[in-house]
């Protein structure tokens, strides 16, 4: 138990010390949020709704980023630096190591969600019901699981540089095409039809529904779940192939 707590604590420390994380997951989303709700005139029909909508976009964008990038890159780093091998030789059981990573990651996500929600509430005086705040935060926390699974896929790559490069590009593509930067509705038809199949769109969509007084649709949940299964199977398959080699 002591080992588990200590492991969680250290995992969290490591993420917070990572400059990439602080920049991409906390500063960028808040700056973007400020720009697209206060500086640039978006001609939104309902400015209050737009401000709440875009806060969800940016929070989802942030949490999706740290899910995809932080976990995967760290896995590659630990493997290439011999740390994974060393840990296998200590009495720390694998499941404790894994669950500590997950708990650490969740704490980080809760922190990001809280910070960005607070920033939004302060910058634009957004007023949601306590239930809406809570539900949208919870949705973003749980909805990030398929992206964590995606992160472990990058974690199987050989080099930190490749993993960082590819995951970063994919992260941006998912964010833009999933309507996190600009709503899908204002994009060309072709982009829209692709976007509707991306996990990032359904991740954001659940939160957008909640702040408009609705609930995430079944389609949101089913598609995110399907992606989770695909990523997990893929990761299992690749791992088996790597072990055989």
């Amino acid at each position: 138990m002591k080992a588990f707590q200590m492991q969680c604590k250290m995992e969290i420390k490591r993420v917070l010390r990572n400059r990439y994380f602080v920049f991409w997951s906390l500063m960028m989303p808040i700056i973007f949020y400020y720009i697209f709700t206060n500086v640039v005139n978006t001609n939104a029909a309902d400015p209050a709704a737009w401000k709440a909508h875009y806060l969800m976009s940016m929070t989802a964008f942030s949490v999706m980023g740290s899910s995809i990038m932080t976990l995967g890159i760290r896995m590659v780093q630990e493997r290439t630096q011999g740390w994974s091998t060393f840990i296998r030789l200590t009495p720390l059981p694998d499941h404790i190591y894994f669950s500590a990573q997950m708990v650490g990651q969740s704490v980080i996500h809760i922190l990001s969600i809280t910070v960005i929600f607070l920033a939004g509430a302060i910058i634009n005086r957004i007023s949601l019901t306590p239930m809406e705040w809570f539900m949208s935060g919870l949705w973003i926390l749980l909805g990030s699981i398929p992206f964590l699974a995606m992160g472990t896929l990058f974690g199987l790559m050989k080099k930190v540089e490749t993993a960082a490069g590819i995951s970063n590009v994919l992260y941006m593509v998912l964010a833009v095409c999933g309507g996190m930067w600009m709503p899908l509705e204002i994009m060309p038809k072709a982009m829209q039809s692709i976007g509707h199949w991306l996990p990032s769109y359904h991740f954001g969509s659940g939160a957008w529904e909640i702040v408009q007084g609705g609930l995430p649709s079944w389609k949101n949940i089913v598609i995110l779940f399907a992606y989770l299964v695909v990523f997990m199977l893929l990761s299992k398959y690749i791992r088996r192939k790597q072990e055989a080699a």
Binding site: M10, R14, R74, Q81, G82, W83, T85, F86
Partner: peptide, 15 residues
């Protein structure tokens, strides 16, 4: 009951 030093140096980044 065992303690090891491997031929490859191992460290944990960030701490």
């Amino acid at each position: 009951k065992i303690g090891t030093m491997l031929q490859e140096v191992s460290v944990m980044p960030g701490l």
